[in-house]
């Protein structure tokens, strides 16, 4: 019977494929040298495989869960803030229309305008901070909900032509909520680390 020569490369590949199996392929049985080489490499590969399989020391799954939760919360907050910005923008359009209808500026109108500008500025700061800071999830959700309610009240106030004083009160509330939110962010960012 003719024995086919098998290359060392092929012997090594067979040894790798047959790790942890009680197999000696026909092709390596052709010669004692091939067989010996095959068995040596097979044993070597089994040892390498066994000794390199290690479990991590830390709880990586917990870190993955936490990181995902933070990322999801930030995405949700960004969506809420963009939604609020959209409402604020539509409010400004309504304000602008009504402004043009006024024949003279009043003190109340100036105060309303000042609050609108401050509100816009604080929102920009808040949005910018939220991409960097991890804060209490419940706190952010509450504040976002409060802003949503105020904006809905403002829309109604403009559309129903409510008094300037009422509208000013609502804008002042909005500014107050944004200021509180920023203050809380600063306090909580010192407490939380990931």
């Amino acid at each position: 019977m003719k024995h086919q020569q098998i290359s060392e490369t092929d012997i090594i590949e067979l040894a790798r494929q047959n790790r942890f199996k009680d197999t000696i392929p026909e092709s390596v049985r052709a010669s004692e040298d091939s067989r010996q080489l095959y068995l040596e490499h097979k044993a070597l590969f089994e040892t390498i495989t066994e000794q390199t399989q290690l479990a991590p020391e830390g709880d990586i799954w917990q870190r993955i869960e936490l990181k995902r939760e933070v990322a999801q919360h930030k995405r949700k907050n960004r969506r809420i803030m963009w939604g609020l910005s959209a409402i604020a923008a539509s409010l400004l359009m309504v304000v602008g229309l009504q402004w043009n209808a006024m024949t003279e500026a009043t003190n109340l109108q100036n105060q309303i305008q000042a609050n609108i500008l401050q509100s816009q500025h604080l929102e920009k700061v808040l949005l910018s901070n939220q991409s960097n800071v991890t804060v209490s999830f419940a706190t952010q959700a509450n504040i976002s909900q409060e802003l949503l309610e105020i904006d809905e009240a403002l829309q109604k106030a403009y559309l129903n032509n409510e008094s300037q004083q009422q509208i000013l009160k609502l804008w002042e509330s909005r500014v107050r909520i944004l200021l509180e939110s920023l203050t809380q962010e600063e306090e909580q960012s010192d407490l939380v680390t990931i």
């Binding site: 290690l54 479990a55 991590p56 990586i60 870190r63």
Partner: peptide
């Protein structure tokens, strides 16, 4: 976890770094 960590450890050569690699990759 185990095969990911073992592979990452061979690639980066450091246990803490390997854990970070597994976390980010997963």
């Amino acid at each position: 976890e185990k095969p990911m960590y073992s592979l990452a450890l061979r690639m980066v050569g450091d246990k803490a770094l390997a854990e970070d690699m597994v976390q980010d990759a997963f």
